[in-house]
Design a protein around this nucleic acid. Structure first.
Lengths: 138, 138
DNA sequence: TTATGTGCAAAACATTTGCAGGAGT
DNA sequence: ACTCCTGCAAATGTTTTGCACATAA
């Protein structure tokens, strides 16, 4: 639960973090594995899962639980929202104000103790929209 | 994509829908299976999955893709938000205004064609909060 | 009668875990 | 040394799928 301060900085962790920081996409564990494996061919998928989870728990990265079948990870840890393409599954950050005040509305509307919220937009990304236009033209 | 009008009303579908409508929780496919099995002991889990998906596609029910490992289903199809307990995984509806205007903000902030959005709050439900207070007292 | 749906079991995925050996401090 | 970490492989949990039979229209 607590941020473990005694987490060793191993080569594997270093590389996972570096590779995640390189991209603005929101790779799945398996995609991170592929990226990291180019530099550390013998790394195990289990290690990638374990370390992504540990880093997320300690707040170094974000574990994004959006729709779709896989969890995604993000090196940007400041609060922000996401948009997911219904066609291709791509997930992007969305650059709009963080609605910190809606937590209060939720607190009023429930008996939960509110920690945070996340907004996920769904739609069609520019690339898929383009393809659809092409398909319709034929 | 389109609402398939040629979906037969079978006993299984009827019962799945009825059982789902009975509860305000947001059961997983497996929980629906357990509920339905009390009335139709020979129903298969595959049938439950297949029909929940079909009903969600045709708009009869909602498939909720929130955090956690399983998808959840909801017989309430009017747009609303959810809150999930970080301790026990319970998901509840939250009775606050639907922020239809934030889709516009998202459209401005991205090149996506926006369809919809969903807000998921996270926190601790009253039951878990109570248990925590008990635990601390000991 | 015939297209669609069901039960069952196996397969396909995503993720977690046990363990023996390896590496950081 | 001693603890923590890794690779590997097996286990787990969720969802999907193939297929022969059943059933609604």
């Amino acid at each position: 639960m607590e941020t473990s301060t005694n987490m060793r900085i191993t080569t594997q962790r270093q590389v996972i973090l570096e590779e995640l920081a390189k991209v603005t996409s929101h790779p799945t564990a398996n995609e991170v594995y592929d990226m990291v494996r180019r530099r550390l061919p013998r790394i195990g998928l289990g290690t990638v899962y374990r370390n992504l989870d540990l880093m997320a728990e300690s707040g170094m990265i974000l574990k994004i639980e959006v729709g779709g079948t896989q969890k995604r990870f993000d090196a940007t840890t400041t609060p922000h929202y996401h948009i997911r393409c219904l066609e291709c599954g791509r997930v992007n950050d969305i650059d709009m104000d963080f609605q910190s005040e809606i937590n209060d509305a939720a607190a009023d509307a429930s008996h939960y103790q509110i920690f945070s919220h996340h907004i996920e937009f769904t739609g069609v990304c520019p690339m898929c929209a383009k393809q659809e236009r092409h398909a319709l033209a034929n």
